[in-house]
């Protein structure tokens, strides 16, 4: 299965490299988009020195983790984001007759290689934050950092699968879905404790952004030494269950729309 994915990965890169000028322009444009996000934080912290007690580097760490997860999904799991196209034109039918899992095949359809620049940029921001943060490294810190990055990838994957399963009902992409992915990404760039209670509860228990870059962050920057905070990113796995389940249910009731 991994081999298959690597094969389709290679093919996707080949396709994109066919148009070299386009590929280069596209890579440059990735820098611009990311810069606007980065600029907001730098400009605001130019005027203010903290946000609810969090320093600029703590916010940047928070920011880089959420962007890492999002960019990772955009690069390697792009197919699921564009799932509605497969449902609308009926090409999903072809997948049904092949001897591989549907979700796996969907992931293989599209890999947006230029988005890898966004992953790299988020890693650069992460390094900037880590260098400036004065962290007392130990094994726990390393684990929590890896867990945060993994959880960030998983939560967006879960959300993309969830919104994809919604296409089975509507047969079209839903604009509001961007609120949970894109909107959530914007919101979770900052430690969620800066928002009002209702938001914090929603993004802790319903869509668990808090377990990605807030609760574990507290452990990481020594605001708490509770081990539970360190392991909290693991809770994102629980969030994945209903997401995958809804996709399975949707698949069961799938009626082809195409010809």
């Amino acid at each position: 299965m991994v081999k298959l994915y690597i094969n389709s990965f290679k093919n996707n890169i080949k396709i994109q490299l066919e148009y070299k000028a386009s590929f280069i322009m596209n890579s440059i444009s990735q820098l611009f988009v990311f810069f606007t996000y980065y600029f907001v934080i730098i400009a605001l912290f130019n005027k203010f020195d903290n946000i609810k007690g969090f320093s600029v580097y703590e916010v940047l760490l928070c920011f880089s983790i959420i962007h890492f997860g999002f960019a990772f999904n955009e690069t390697f799991f792009r197919g699921i984001d564009k799932f509605e196209d497969l449902v609308i034109d009926g090409s999903l039918d072809r997948f049904l007759v092949r001897p591989q899992g549907i979700l796996f095949q969907v992931l293989c359809t599209k890999i947006d290689f230029v988005k890898i620049f966004r992953i790299l940029q988020s890693l650069v921001v992460m390094i900037i934050a880590l260098v400036n943060l004065d962290i007392h490294w130990n094994i726990g810190k390393v684990i929590v950092l890896i867990l945060m990055m993994m959880a960030s990838v998983l939560i967006f994957f879960g959300l993309f699968v969830l919104t994809a399963s919604y296409c089975f009902i509507t047969i079209q992409g839903l604009e509001v879905k961007n609120l949970f992915t894109d909107g959530g990404k914007n919101l979770a760039q900052y430690p969620i404790s800066i928002y009002r209670k209702g938001i914090v509860i929603f993004f802790t228990f319903i869509i668990p952004y808090g377990f990605i870059n807030y609760y574990p962050l507290l452990y990481f920057v020594d605001r708490t030494d509770n081990m539970l905070y360190m392991l909290s990113p693991l809770l994102v796995f629980i969030f994945l269950i209903p997401c995958l389940l809804s996709f399975k249910i949707g698949m069961k009731h799938y009626n082809s729309a195409g010809s």
Binding site: A21, M25, S29, F32
Partner: peptide, 8 residues
């Protein structure tokens, strides 16, 4: 050929 660079 590709509008994305200039546009973004």
């Amino acid at each position: 050929i590709d509008s994305r660079g200039i546009t973004s």
